[in-house]
């Protein structure tokens, strides 16, 4: 398969180096969260905490209204992910499988918006949200992101790869479009939905600028905003607190990834036709 055994050793060697490069900063973050500020800034740096301390974590939970920020983050990221999974796949289905006037143009428009960087639409979007009276509310944090051009593109491309015969068969059996979408197409979109779900959740979970600008009081802050608030000063940064916070913030993302990653490697959907 992969040629000689020697080649395989090579491959594993390269992969091992890459793995260390990817994991090392992560390990550093977790270990660093147990160090004192003095030790963190020590030179040469230490890997293992010399005097392990839980101070950073006690501070994190004592100073921050952690539960509140955590809930906000979960609500926003879940809503955005759910919205993307539903709406992007709907639009993707329409663009891939239905025939209607202006379909091509619609797709090109979606692609065009994909080309426009977020910074350009940032201020107009904020003005819209402000005029709708949604500033400082949780809906203001997730409503504008319920559908994304990238998600639509991803779903369309994936659904295009599904056999059209499935849809036709459904129509012959008298199923409506919604039923075909929901009962035939969606179940086959597992891998694409998993990819979209992970990417969207991650993006929303880590999003900093939008929640910072829209949330006007601490009650609607999300975790990244709260973390930046408490750990970064005008001229100095509390690295211990930052690392402890980052460690805690990473956990939910890991959980989401664990849930979805099995679907990544599941079989290709086209096996539906024999």
């Amino acid at each position: 398969m992969l040629g000689s055994r020697k080649q395989q050793y090579w491959l594993y060697g390269v992969l091992a180096v890459a793995l260390v490069a990817v994991i090392a900063p992560f390990v550093w973050m977790v270990l660093g969260s147990f160090k004192t500020t003095g030790e963190l800034r020590q030179s040469p740096p230490t890997w293992w905490p010399e005097t392990a301390t839980l101070d950073n974590y006690t501070q994190l939970f004592a100073r921050l209204d952690f539960g509140g920020y955590f809930t906000n983050s979960i609500v926003v990221a879940t809503a955005v992910t759910a919205g993307n999974l539903v709406f992007c796949s709907m639009l993707g289905y329409a663009l891939a499988m239905l025939d209607f006037r202006g379909k091509r143009a619609l797709f090109v428009v979606v692609m065009t918006t994909l080309m426009i960087p977020g910074v350009v639409t940032f201020v107009p979007l904020f003005v819209l949200v402000a005029n709708a009276g949604l500033v400082d509310t949780l809906p203001g944090l997730f409503l504008p992101f319920l559908v994304s051009p990238f998600g639509v593109f991803l779903m369309r491309q994936f659904i295009l790869g599904l056999p059209r015969d499935l849809v036709d068969a459904g129509r012959v059996d008298g199923a409506g479009e919604l039923r075909i979408y929901w009962r035939i197409i969606l179940p086959l979109c597992g891998p694409a939905l998993a990819t979209l779900g992970i990417l969207t959740f991650l993006g929303s979970w880590n999003n900093f600028l939008w929640p910072l600008v829209v949330a006007q009081t601490e009650q609607s802050y999300t975790l990244p905003v709260a973390l930046a608030l408490y750990s970064t000063g005008q001229n100095s940064t509390q690295y211990g607190l930052l690392l402890a916070g980052a460690t805690v913030v990473v956990l939910p993302v890991l959980v989401v990834f664990m849930i979805f990653q099995r679907r990544f490697i599941e079989g290709i959907a086209t096996t539906g036709i024999k």
Binding site: F208, L209, L212, V213, Q216, T217, E218, V225, A228, L229, T232, G233, Q234
Partner: peptide, 11 residues
């Protein structure tokens, strides 16, 4: 309202 220094200018 406490706001983070990071990106405060953008806000």
């Amino acid at each position: 309202t406490a706001i983070p220094w990071d990106a405060a200018h953008d806000k």
